[in-house]
Design a protein around this nucleic acid. Structure first.
Lengths: 204, 204
DNA sequence: ATATTTTTGTAGTGCGCATTACAAAATCCA
DNA sequence: TGGATTTTGTAATGCGCACTACAAAAATAT
């Protein structure tokens, strides 16, 4: 709708494009992380001065939160499809991990913004903001796994989240999309075997 | 030997214990990372003033390098045993990952100091120092794997390094040693399956 | 036209950081 | 005892950071 922008618009109009600014901030935060990116870096990249920055975004931390949300919406991986009805758990995990590998590999060595942000550094509040999103991801994976294998949900979720972290770290270490996909394939193949063994034990 | 300390010792003697100071610095750097730990934090923890700090360690970065080395020697995982003769590749990887899980879990939510340090943040030089050690680890894993399966060495090494990163991240997320071990078991089981499949394909 | 509202540019603010100048103190060597 | 050497404590230094005071500028509302 954007009624705010079109219908009203009192006062002096903004001299820069908001979407462009958010896109640039997202790319910078994703590449360098919260702590290593200064407000001066941001204002220079956007092409504005500090007062415009604070008037538009409130604070560095607030912009980071907005950008994290934007990243999750625009570039986050699909957590519903892989656990939909008609897809086995092993196959769902395989799809999830392959999707992550492709996604992280396409980021040009940046990995996942949420996972890397949640690892934290100097600013505790920024870390918390990323953690909130990562916790949401964790809960959605847990919910999806629970529908197939409630008793092993914690174990499988632990494994999936650890593998996502490993993929993101490997992406940041410069691994190609192909090599990331190979990691995802090994990781998901192993899980199929593990799940098959468990079923065997319970239904001999 | 410590000849330097006992035989010579000109000038005013040091008023603090060097080993204690290094141990404290190691614990702090491991828990908080390089950027989030200030020299003021360090001097306060050790119980000295800045001039003593710089006289003893040179700089924050130099102390970090020394402490990283110390960590690798004292708490690093064994990269030789798992790839020794008489141990299959799958079993070697299983031992390596279980060792890492136990090690990272014992760190009280700190994960691996080298892996986390290499992820970087604000200070590029500190990141490079950790990276150097992580590259050494990578090369040793690669060499160990190569002796068993030279053609798949890159793939297996990628997988092992990614899993180590995932375990370290999971440890920092607060997972218990038990849950980390379960992740390590699934991950090593998955690789064993993959390796078995490859052999099947080549010797049908 | 005038008042109102919002953004803009210039030029700062205070704070925490790693690091250091300096002189007194504590040891060894002659 | 006196000179050499190193560490110590006090107290700074300069720098980069997130953030802001202020007034001019650019739009709408009446």
């Amino acid at each position: 709708m954007r009624t705010t922008k079109i219908l009203k618009a009192r006062g002096r109009p903004r001299a820069f494009d908001m979407e462009d600014a958010l896109a640039k901030a997202q790319a910078l935060f994703r590449a360098r992380g919260y702590d290593a990116l200064s407000v001066a870096d941001l204002t220079e990249a956007i092409g504005i001065n500090p007062p415009s920055f604070y008037s538009a975004f409130g604070s560095k931390s607030a912009l980071y939160g907005q950008v994290l949300q934007r990243y999750a919406e625009l570039e986050g991986i699909d957590l519903e499809g892989p656990f939909a009805a008609g897809v086995s758990l092993a196959e769902g995990v395989r799809r999830l991990l392959r999707q992550a590998a492709t996604n992280y590999g396409a980021g040009n060595g940046t990995g996942c913004m949420v996972i890397e942000g949640a690892r934290g550094g100097v600013d505790a509040e920024a870390c918390r903001q990323a953690r909130r999103l990562l916790d949401q991801t964790h809960d959605m994976v847990h919910a999806g796994v629970s529908r197939h294998a409630p008793e092993q949900a914690e174990m499988v979720t632990d494994y999936v989240m650890a593998t996502l972290s490993g993929l993101s770290a490997s992406a940041r270490n410069g691994l190609s999309g192909e090599r990331l996909l190979r990691i995802a394939d090994i990781a998901s193949g192993q899980l199929a075997q593990e799940l098959a063994d468990e079923i065997e034990e319970k239904q001999p």
